[in-house]
Computed example of a mutant assay.
Amino acid sequence: MKISTSALLNELKERTSQHLEYAQTLTLKTEEELNFRNSQDSWSPLQCLEHLNRYGDFYIPEISRNIYSAGKSPQSYFKPGILGNYFAKSMLPKENLNKMKTLKIMNPIHSQLNKTVIEKFISQQKQLLTLLEKAQNIDLEKTKTSISISKLIKLKLGDTFRFVIYHNTRHIEQIQKILNS
């Protein structure tokens, strides 16, 4: 499967812009609403965002470092890698959302959080939009990034963007479900 690089980057920018806009609406909610949990072992909206912020703390500097060290050689098409495509697709929300285990360090359960979590998420989304713009000038296949679970495994930059942004989509939908319950 080949994807037009510009179409991929546009889709990812659109999703990221939607995440940014949604996060801005969350600033209007009370901290009580944002800390609501459906059960003892479920996350609150702020915990969902904190989880995403923790991933952003790893991936944004990792992506940035690799974009700035990449040569200028944009390609018209992007072909996902087998592992990267699997990771990215597994993050997309499905009808019956499959629960996934998260790394202990990325699990915000029982954290006491406030609205600064939203501000940080908004800042990270703006950084992602900047990185997506810069990515238009480089090869999304040849530029590789480490992943959060192992520095030894490298994904194509296009797959890393897809994974991070689809992961954000997954948890934004989770937040919407919590707030609508």
Rank of each mutant, 00 (worst) to 15 (best):
E14L: 15
R15M: 12
R15S: 12
T16W: 09
T16F: 13
T16C: 15
S17I: 09
Q18T: 15
H19F: 09
L20A: 05
E21C: 06
Y22H: 06
Q24C: 08
T25G: 10
L26Q: 11
T27E: 14
K29D: 11
K29C: 15
T30V: 12
E31I: 14
E32K: 15
E33D: 15
E33I: 14
E33H: 12
L34S: 14
L34G: 13
L34Y: 10
L34C: 14
N35A: 15
N35L: 14
F36W: 14
R37H: 06
N38T: 13
S42I: 10
S42N: 06
P45I: 13
L46G: 12
L46S: 12
Q47M: 14
L49H: 07
L49N: 08
E50N: 08
H51K: 02
N53W: 09
N53I: 05
N53R: 09
R54E: 00
R54M: 04
R54H: 01
Y55E: 01
G56Q: 07
D57M: 05
D57R: 09
F58S: 03
F58M: 02
P61C: 11
E62F: 06
I63P: 03
I63M: 15
S64E: 11
R65D: 09
R65T: 15
R65C: 06
N66V: 11
I67Q: 05
K72P: 01
K72V: 10
P74L: 11
F78T: 02
K79P: 00
P80E: 14
P80Y: 11
G81H: 08
L83M: 12
L83T: 10
N85P: 00
Y86Q: 04
F87C: 03
F87P: 01
K89F: 02
K89E: 07
S90Y: 02
S90T: 07
S90Q: 10
M91P: 00
M91Y: 04
M91F: 01
M91W: 01
K94F: 00
K94T: 10
E95Y: 01
N96H: 02
L97A: 00
N98I: 12
N98C: 04
N98L: 09
N98H: 01
K99R: 09
K99C: 01
M100G: 00
M100A: 11
M100D: 02
K101C: 01
T102K: 00
T102I: 02
T102Q: 00
K104H: 12
I105F: 05
M106V: 02
M106T: 00
I109N: 06
I109P: 02
H110L: 11
H110W: 08
S111F: 09
S111A: 13
L113M: 11
L113S: 06
K115R: 13
K115H: 07
V117Q: 03
I118N: 06
I118T: 08
E119N: 03
E119G: 01
K120R: 12
K120P: 00
K120L: 10
K120Q: 04
F121E: 05
F121Y: 10
I122H: 03
S123H: 10
